[in-house]
């Protein structure tokens, strides 16, 4: 997995609550058997009209946000389905960090598996960063995972909380499966215990 350490980039403001996974990547793009190439269809139904032309007003179509690497969004981001296509599309577009007051559980988890940092911040702080993001491409925000800080374009520093295990995995770019396989003895002894306690499983 790709590491996440520190990032300075343009932040796109998306002040919408309950952004669901159908908005992030509609189901017609789930027919792929690959992880790559979904970025062009990120937010497809908001980003393109019925004829496939770009909607000029949509934030990621505006010239100043085309290379955004950070997304600032509303409450309950990523609700809905478990599709990992959502973080794949976000990453493929080039966004590596999301800042929002809260996330849906599965989406939040999925981010970490793909080297995306989802930051949780109180509403007022998200509001402040949203304002900052609205300034466009001159306003670059810095996210530092090591120090758990976000620095706005005018130098204001915000702290955020982060689960230490997830932080460690993201900083090191660790592969979960490899880590777990190191515990294969523990898994085997669990299985032999379970085989007597719950043989019907």
């Amino acid at each position: 997995m790709e590491k996440f350490e520190k990032l300075t980039g343009v932040a796109a403001p998306l002040p919408v609550i309950n952004v669901d996974t159908d908005m992030i990547i509609p189901k017609q793009f789930l027919k792929t058997i690959k992880r790559e190439g979904l970025g062009v269809n990120l937010f497809d139904e908001m980003r393109y009209d019925d004829n496939g032309n770009e909607v000029p007003d949509f934030v990621l179509n505006k010239p100043q946000y085309r290379n955004a690497e950070i997304l600032v969004a509303g409450d309950n981001f990523g609700c809905g389905s478990s599709r990992e296509h959502a973080p794949w599309a976000i990453k493929d577009f080039g966004i590596r960090c999301i800042i929002a007051p809260s996330y849906a559980d599965i989406f939040y988890n999925n981010c970490f598996k793909n080297g995306i940092l989802p930051i949780i911040m109180p509403q007022e702080e998200v509001d402040a960063l949203m304002k900052d993001a609205e300034k466009g491409s001159n306003a670059r925000i810095t996210v530092d995972l090591e120090t758990q800080t976000v620095t706005s374009s005018d130098g204001e520093v915000f702290k955020f909380e982060m689960d230490p295990f997830r932080k460690h995995c993201l900083l090191e770019g660790l592969d979960d499966i490899g880590l777990t396989m190191n515990r294969s003895d523990e898994i085997a002894s669990f299985e032999s215990r379970a085989a007597t306690e719950r043989p019907w499983v």
């Binding site: 992880r35 599965i106 988890n109 999925n110 598996k113 979960d176 499966i177 777990t180 396989m181 294969s184």
Partner: peptide, 11 residues
């Protein structure tokens, strides 16, 4: 998610 699907398949 799919990464977890892979994790469960493997472990």
């Amino acid at each position: 998610g799919t990464s977890e699907v892979e994790h469960v398949l493997a472990t």
